[in-house]
């Protein structure tokens, strides 16, 4: 018997992004399955795109996923294109920090994933995004689809003259054309 409201999706909105709240629903109830479907997509969005992270967590990913989602809930993270970057921010202050920083493949994967997500989701007029990180001199650029025959494109740039490091762990700026010809300064991630 479920005592929580569950007539509509709307009754479940807060739980759709919270493994903690999901646990309040009995596992044999449709509401639990509905929430589970939602949570699985957050999981797959992270680990299908950045499978390297499973090397840190183990194959079910839960030692990263559950505490990150709880932390994200406390911080009220928007889960926008920067979703992956915030996972890195969390990993950096987690027990995984040492292994994370020992191999830059994790950072490369995470920056590329966020650049791609921006290119997929952003509906503003900008054509590209440049993401920088205090832990690397390299930049990652995400380009929106520019031709009917192409998809989005992600580039890793190793600049000859590095840009100044972002003041926070990550910074970004957007490009109004399909050229990297400006550096307007770093913007901080919005939560």
């Amino acid at each position: 018997m479920l005592s929580l409201p569950s007539r509509t999706d709307r009754d479940l909105y807060p739980a759709l992004m919270s493994p903690v709240l999901c646990a309040n629903y009995p596992a044999d109830h449709k509401a639990f399955v509905r929430i589970d479907v939602s949570l699985r997509i957050y999981w797959h969005t992270l680990f299908d795109i950045c499978p390297e992270l499973l090397e840190l967590s183990g194959p079910d990913g839960m030692s990263i996923f559950r505490p990150f989602m709880a932390w994200a809930g406390e911080k009220k993270l928007a889960f926008d294109w920067s979703y992956y970057l915030w996972v890195y921010v969390w990993l950096r202050q987690s027990p995984f920090k040492e292994r994370l920083l020992a191999d830059d493949k994790y950072l490369r994967s995470i920056m590329a994933a966020s650049a791609a997500r921006w290119a997929i989701l952003d509906r503003g007029r900008d054509c590209g995004i440049v993401i920088g990180c205090a832990d690397t001199k390299n930049l990652v650029i995400g380009w929106k689809c520019r031709s009917v025959r192409l998809g989005r494109e992600i580039e890793l740039i190793e600049p000859e003259e590095p840009l100044p490091a972002p003041p926070d762990i990550f910074g970004y700026f957007t490009l109004q054309s399909f050229e990297l010809d400006i550096f307007p300064g770093w913007q901080s991630l919005a939560r």
Binding site: D9, Y13, M17, V37, S38, I41, T45, L77, A78, F79
Partner: peptide, 21 residues
């Protein structure tokens, strides 16, 4: 449909409440 709740994005998009909205 709903893309977010209280400024936080759904990855599996949300259905509205037809009777109240």
């Amino acid at each position: 449909l709903r893309f977010s709740h209280e400024g936080r994005a759904f990855f599996h998009l949300g259905e509205i409440d037809y009777s109240t909205e």
